[in-house]
Design a binder for these strands. Structure first.
Lengths: 211, 211
DNA sequence: GCATGATTGGAATGTCAATTCCAACTTGGG
DNA sequence: CCCAAGTTGGAATTGACATTCCAATCATGC
């Protein structure tokens, strides 16, 4: 879980069972729409119609559109990471890395390569225009990169990966390859670029194997 | 150069000297604004004010906002590629690749890592919502990837790169690393991720060197 | 020098978005 | 059962934006 907005504590409102469900429905609907049309391209009336709620409800639960966007970022981060588990927590072999990346490629194919990365697309759109969104996105990428780095670190601790390998840098490089590969795939409507990008980085990691 | 809009030919309007300059100023101003705020986040009135032109002028030269966006994509492609030459046309050694990528990293630092890639940001925003924009973006990335692939192919032809190396895939991987690295750098406000990403891929290319 | 088309200014139009307001309704705890 | 707080509907407000229009001005080939 993550913080709903920013500094809470004093004015935490209590939620009814129905209220919680409404709130969730709004977030999920908004996330879906924003994934396809971007945050700026998704209007409150759009969300109202798709989620079957009134404007009051959205403003009641999120304050304003920016609040909803922040909630969507956190939701997408939670959802995407959850979807990648348990693989994400066991990236401590070359095979595991390949399998994990391959699944993302298959998901991309399954949707016809429309849409890029759920988090990356929001990042590209919001990084420069919304300071609090950027903060959430930093956290999102950190939460994503962390497990990759941990997996590589475990391989290194076990002596499978050369001590000269910079596991943190390799994890960053793999995440970057995923992001860039997804973008190229989205534009080209083919997962090939994604697969080539991640494959190159994993090959590189493999070259650090001991023996 | 690139096509102004789409299927021209019959109704090519002639441009006065002043008209050409006005048109250019609009494109450059729009490109600058859209780089910082995105295409959707940049309004026609914004561009009017920044370029010192009236609405009539924008609609006279570009028809509608989408026409202007397409012109901006082509302009950014031309401009960015031109800026990378002549290095871009001589990427046939590991050193040249590193130098070329390093310059982009320095430029990113110079602007405080605000803004991502001029083309990649537009790609992320428009790939799914504007079919003709996507077409232009495919061409933009192809024009970018081509010289990389050519450089690698030359290395291979000279026997410096292993025959087993897939130069096309490596070029794609490097472009993806650039895109993903730029995105992470933009979010984190540090070029480190970009440098680690491209470094990993270039190291990987280096591992294909013969001898 | 004139006619024709290029260029420009600036107001007008219609749409739609974000947000606010307030009244009505529901719910849970005491 | 009753009240304070949570929840919802729907209209009203305000502002911005894309686009159109028309009339005026300017440049250039003839």
């Amino acid at each position: 879980m993550s913080a709903p907005v920013k500094a809470e504590g004093p004015k935490e409102q209590r939620l009814t069972e129905g209220g919680r469900k409404t709130r969730e429905r709004i977030i999920e609907t908004a996330a879906e729409l924003m994934f396809h049309r971007g945050a700026g391209g998704t209007s409150i009336p759009d969300i109202q119609a798709a989620a079957g709620v009134s404007a009051s409800q959205i403003y009641h639960y999120f304050g304003d559109k920016q609040g909803l966007v922040l909630a969507v970022i956190d939701h997408q981060t939670d959802t995407q990471l959850a979807q990648q588990r348990p693989l994400l927590d066991n990236l401590d072999s070359i095979e595991a890395l390949r399998e994990w990346c391959d699944r993302a490629g298959n998901r991309q194919d399954a949707r016809g390569c429309e849409g890029g990365c759920e988090i990356g697309s929001l990042a590209s759109e919001l990084a420069d225009s919304d300071q609090s969104a950027r903060t959430s996105l930093i956290s999102a990428f950190d939460r994503w990169e962390g497990p990759i780095r941990s997996g590589l670190a475990r391989m290194q601790a076990r002596g499978e990966l050369s001590e000269r390998a910079d596991t943190a840098a390799l994890a960053t490089a793999l995440l970057a390859a995923i992001q860039g590969g997804m973008l190229l795939s989205q534009v080209r409507r083919s997962s090939t670029a994604y697969r080539q990008a991640v494959s190159a980085v994993i090959d590189h990691i493999e070259s650090h194997l001991v023996r």
